[in-house]
Amino acid sequence: MNTLPTSAVVLAGAVDLDTDTVTPGVLGFLAIFAVGLALYYLMRSMTGKLRALNVGADAEREGTGPAAASAEEESRS
């Protein structure tokens, strides 16, 4: 039905690669660099969001956060 896997196996057997000279090259370096760069910015974003969560939780414990203000308004009504 599909001859691509069969022809790939046949062609792969015909190619003789020297394991000492095969390297990832520039494309491999760029792929790893892009993954590292994306990871850096994702971690930086996550750290900022976690800090904002922590500040919000601290303010709520002290009674100065938005949840405390809305609860205070409801108790007045």
Rank of each mutant, 00 (worst) to 15 (best):
G48D: 11
A69W: 03
D18Q: 06
A59N: 04
N2H: 09
P5D: 02
F33I: 00
A67N: 08
L53Q: 12
G36L: 13
V9E: 14
L50F: 14
V9K: 06
T21P: 04
S7R: 14
A71Y: 05
Y40P: 07
L27E: 09
V10Y: 06
M46L: 13
L39W: 10
L50R: 07
A14I: 05
A34N: 06
A59H: 07
L11I: 06
P66Y: 10
L17V: 05
V15D: 04
G25Y: 00
S75Q: 00
A12F: 13
R61I: 09
T21W: 03
E62C: 05
T6F: 11
G36N: 02
V9H: 03
K49N: 09
M43D: 15
L53G: 13
P5L: 01
S70Q: 05
S45C: 15
D20A: 09
V55N: 11
S77A: 07
T23E: 09
T64V: 08
T21R: 07
P24V: 10
P5A: 03
A57N: 11
G63W: 05
V9Y: 10
S45P: 09
R44V: 15
S77R: 15
T64H: 10
T3R: 15
E60P: 00
A67D: 01
G28M: 01
A38E: 02
T21D: 03
L27N: 10
V22C: 01
G65Y: 01
L11D: 12
F33T: 04
L42Q: 12
D16R: 11
V15Q: 03
L27W: 10
A12P: 02
A67L: 12
L50V: 07
R44P: 01
S75R: 04
P5V: 01
G63E: 00
V9S: 04
A71D: 03
G65L: 01
Y41L: 11
Y40E: 09
P24E: 05
D58V: 07
G25Q: 04
R44D: 11
Y40N: 08
N54P: 04
G36R: 02
S7I: 07
N2T: 04
T3H: 15
T19M: 07
D16M: 08
T64S: 07
G36M: 02
A52K: 06
A59Q: 06
T19W: 15
V10Q: 09
T64I: 08
T19C: 12
R51S: 14
G56C: 02
V26P: 10
V10K: 09
V35H: 02
D18A: 03
R51G: 06
